[in-house]
Amino acid sequence: MRTIAEPLTTTSALREFLHGLPGVDEVGIKARATALGTRSIKNDSKSWAIDMAIRMVDLTTLEGMDTPGKVRAMCAKALRPDPTDPTAPSVAAVCVYGDMAPVARAVVGDNLHVAAVATAFPSGRASIEVKLRDVRDAVAGGADEIDMVIDRGAFLAGNYGLVHEQIVAVKAACGLAHLKVILETGELRTLDNVRRASWLAMLAGADFIKTSTGKVPVAATPAVTIVMLQAVRDYCALTGSQIGVKPAGGIRTSKDAIKYLVLVKETAGEAWLTPDLFRFGASTLLNDLLMQRQRMAVGHYSGPDYVTID
């Protein structure tokens, strides 16, 4: 097994380590994702998976048009997703822009996590001072989870030291808040880059690694998620610490969500099947999960009029 022999902070040391990781064969991993996608989840396991998926949702709104009213409505939904069925669990967290963190916190109190995107989300194109200020504001506003973006430009230019340094600085600025590091895999393009960026983020102190901002055309995919799950699995084998994974963007149906849970189970293992270590960044997914849940409960298909829009 690989070991981490020296402090990995400089570009050259990081480069040596990251480029020493095994490559990822794109076709092979897609074939694996397809094969796992044929798992058929029925009956009790399906009910269990739907509730688990609901509990893993970071219910998200990240729009320029967000208002306190919209955020409050979403938070209410997050607390009690199905007003007709008190057995429906709450989601894991709400995810908003930093300026909305106080609004969200006021609604959810201590019952849910409040995640705020920060660090000049979504592009990350700002000075480190601006990014850190963004983080501090969000934390001060009540966020206990920070979803930062990495500097993809620096990563693609091979400036791993800079990316590392910024994550370390953001982590420090988070204080007690958990740090999710968004790799924006749609911009990293290759799965080799996804693997390297995952390790880079973990080495720099990420608590979670997250696929996407949802603001570029390609968001979470099963293949990308498998690569990230392999990274956290291998990082755990090496260091003993468990890092979480959050696919975000494009996961809209219960069927998709359940497929992701299969990926988690069969790649990282059962230990990751908890909201502490796996989240879905999603908005419309929740209603589909609720409709499926209703269908399992009442035995016929539900419709959009029987779940709330927020």
């Binding site: 798992r39 058929s40 989840i41 029925k42 009956n43 009790d44 396991s45 399906k46 269990w48 998976a49 688990m52 849970l261 189970k265 059962e270 099947l273």
Partner: peptide
């Protein structure tokens, strides 16, 4: 409970 797959014949 763990994520056991129910029979799917």
């Amino acid at each position: 409970m763990t994520f056991e797959y129910a029979p799917a014949p």
